[in-house]
């Protein structure tokens, strides 16, 4: 396991981290890289957003709004 990850490797590990697939050393290497890299930090936030969006899918309930106005 090497500790100096590049962004390509980091992007794969960040995805894998979302599925609980990282060893301790990989998590450590990720943390080191993220501290130094804005691009990967941004990418990591995009993955978190994607997860939130999928949990929220299919999104705001337009029928509920209609139900409410009907009273």
């Amino acid at each position: 396991m090497k500790f100096n990850l590049n962004c390509k490797e980091t992007s794969r590990l960040l995805s894998q981290a979302q599925d609980g697939g990282l060893a301790f050393t990989e998590r450590l290497a990720l943390r080191i890289h993220l501290r130094l890299c804005d691009g990967c930090t941004q990418f990591s936030q995009q993955l978190d957003f994607l997860r939130r969006a999928m949990r929220a899918y299919p999104g705001p309930d337009s029928n509920a709004e209609k139900d409410n106005t009907r009273g």
Binding site: C7, Q42, F49, A56
Partner: peptide, 20 residues
């Protein structure tokens, strides 16, 4: 192995997730 184009910020997540 570095980003060819840095990933961009995606704005305010709460706001986005309110839009159908």
């Amino acid at each position: 192995g570095h980003w060819a184009e840095q990933p961009a910020g995606w704005g305010n997540p709460d706001q986005t997730l309110q839009q159908s």
